[in-house]
């Protein structure tokens, strides 16, 4: 079994991992989580079982790293509610990104994580459940509640 050079893994999955990080974090923190994700993946890569779903593996790491960054920055920014990180509302432009980030930030943490992991990260609910805890059914319900809420917040995004 040949193992692809790690560089090609970064090229192939870098954008998706960043989307996952960005959906859970502000812009600057997303960069940090992206780096932490690929650094951790680089360390573990030679031991990754052959035939593994590399993208799912990376998305799972990205989720963990994003939560770590979230905890760190929450400790730093006194008074911020843990499950509602403030997206960088000060950054002008890219209004659609910002809309989604703002709307996601208003979801309860569990809904936000399940929506991001399933819809942006492409993980099946069994793997979403493994990442956030609880059953696959519970993860599916949280995600679907989250999507419903997002639709209200974004106003007019069709299913």
């Amino acid at each position: 079994m040949t193992r692809a050079p790690f560089d090609s893994i970064v090229a192939q999955h870098g954008a998706r991992v960043w989307r996952v990080c960005r959906a859970l974090l502000g812009e600057h923190d997303a960069d940090d989580a992206w780096s932490e994700t690929f650094l951790a993946a680089l360390e573990a890569y030679p031991r990754l079982a052959a035939g593994s779903n590399v993208e799912g593996w990376l998305v799972t790491i990205a989720h963990r790293k994003a939560i770590d960054v979230l905890r760190r920055s929450t400790r730093l920014r006194v008074g911020e509610v843990p499950d509602r990180p403030a997206p960088d509302a000060s950054v002008p432009g890219r209004s659609r990104d910002l809309d989604l980030a703002r709307a996601l930030a208003r979801l309860p943490q569990r809904q936000r994580e399940t929506v991001v992991l399933h819809h942006l990260g492409g993980l099946p609910f069994a793997e979403v459940a493994a990442a956030v805890g609880g059953s696959a059914d519970a993860a599916r319900r949280a995600s679907s509640d989250g999507v419903r809420r997002l639709r209200e917040l974004l106003g007019g995004v069709d299913a």
């Binding site: 870098g14 960043w18 989307r19 974004l154």
Partner: peptide, 19 residues
């Protein structure tokens, strides 16, 4: 699909800098 479309895209120069 809509969510994915709405999600922040990562511009190539930014990806290069991250790499």
């Amino acid at each position: 699909d809509h969510l994915d479309d709405l999600a922040a895209a990562l511009p190539q120069p930014r990806l290069d800098a991250l790499r």
